[in-house]
């Protein structure tokens, strides 16, 4: 099949960007979207032009590196799929595709379709961990966890941090990402001691990163390649509210023992 691509080209963070028109010829329906771009890039390189820069790594839908807006939909038209796992059979001959990077103030464009998502890393650094030395792995069932809780925690932990939630959100909010990260530890017994402190710190960092707020449009849940539910946002809000209501200032009054 033959496609017409309008790709956002931007030389650097502070450079002006624009759409460039490319023709992708003889595209196989079995190619992934990124393979199609690889082929277009081969052509560009052969002509001495700058290839289109895009993020990718595992190309099997689990690393969270790839991601672009394809005709106004994060990761393209297929639900619960990353761009690398989107295949060209989702398109038809003659389609015209508009390809844009994730757009958010917190995700500055590095080049073309590559954006800087280190804001997510800083949210994780603010509290997305369990700060105890866990030692050697325990026996799998040493800590009893109910199936429902284990399932919920796993659903939240499925977040690969691709940024599609921010990209699809009309407000540019990182609520779904932060909620998933707050919840997957907060649900489990190992994450309980820091549950409320974690919610406070991660939400505070999310706000510092200039993301928008959540208005529960639901677009993030639909865009998420892992199908993470907006119920986790309600859970994060609950943890955050409880944290604000119960937090006390840290003093030395606890004694030195």
């Amino acid at each position: 099949m033959n496609l017409i691509l309008h790709v956002w080209r931007q030389a650097g963070a502070n450079a002006a960007g624009r759409f460039e028109r490319y023709e992708a010829r003889d595209v196989s329906a079995d190619m992934s979207f990124l393979e199609m771009l690889d082929v277009v890039n081969e052509g560009l390189i052969a002509n001495g032009q700058e290839p289109i820069a895009f993020d990718h790594d595992c190309r099997e839908g689990i690393c969270g590196m790839c991601g672009m807006m394809i005709n106004g939909t994060a990761h393209g038209p297929m639900k619960m799929t990353t761009t690398c796992q989107l295949h060209m059979r989702s398109f038809k001959d003659g389609d015209e595709l508009w390809i844009e990077p994730w757009r958010a103030r917190a995700f500055q464009v590095v080049k073309d379709l590559v954006v800087d998502r280190s804001a997510f890393d800083r949210i994780i650094q603010a509290g997305g961990f369990v700060s105890v030395n866990t030692g050697a792995p325990q026996d799998a069932n040493a800590i009893p966890i109910s199936k429902q809780v284990a399932d919920d925690a796993m659903d939240a932990a499925a977040c690969i941090g691709c940024g599609a939630c921010v990209a699809a959100c009309p407000n540019g909010s990182a609520s779904l990402f932060t909620a998933a990260k707050v919840s997957h530890l907060g649900l489990l017994p190992q994450g309980q001691p820091e549950r409320y402190r974690r919610a406070l710190k991660m939400v505070a960092q999310m706000d510092l990163e200039d993301f928008g707020h959540c208005t529960l449009f639901g677009e993030c849940q639909e865009a998420c390649p892992k199908g993470i539910s907006i119920d986790f946002i309600a859970r994060m809000n609950h943890d955050y509210l409880r944290a604000v209501a119960t937090q006390r200032e840290e003093t030395a009054a606890g004694g030195t023992g």
Partner: peptide, 29 residues
Amino acid sequence: QLTQRARAARPVDYRMREPQVSTWASRTM
């Protein structure tokens, strides 16, 4: 205040962004 914040959160808008599941009610809030 929140609307101003949301506007600032996406200084360069998409050429194309297709709402998937958001209701007309939510978009007219």
